[in-house]
């Protein structure tokens, strides 16, 4: 029988640094591979609409006539499918999360 088995760990922890950090005062570090949010370099886009068709959540809308590309960040599940399929490689997966918003669109 062992009593107070965790007592050693908790007393040790008292003198150590906290395991969590003070977000957002301390910024979060993203890794190189982190899938954060989708960005478009609109100069290269040919508005082919492939990304729109590939997107599993229908987050992207491409209008060929008006040369318009929009994304609804809250629908996007950051699967990176659109980035993989874009023929012009003009979509990028940024490694920072999309910023907070106060309204849905």
């Amino acid at each position: 029988m062992a009593f107070l088995k965790l007592a050693g760990t908790v007393t040790k922890r008292m003198g150590m640094k906290s395991a969590c950090y003070m977000y957002p005062v301390v910024a979060r570090e993203f890794t190189k591979t982190t899938r954060g949010h989708v960005e478009l370099d609109s100069a290269d886009c040919i508005y082919c609409g492939l990304c729109q068709r590939k997107c599993p959540t229908k987050a992207i809308e491409v209008n060929r006539q008006e040369k318009n590309w929009t994304i609804q960040p809250l629908r996007c599940i950051v699967c990176s499918g659109c980035v993989d399929v874009c023929p012009k490689k003009c979509l990028r997966m940024e490694n920072t999360y999309s910023s907070s918003v106060t309204s849905k669109f």
Partner: peptide, 15 residues
């Protein structure tokens, strides 16, 4: 989770 993010890109959804 940090290791997962570093290798796969997501934290809980590896993708």
């Amino acid at each position: 989770l940090d290791m997962v993010e570093d290798t796969a890109g997501g934290r809980v959804i590896f993708g």
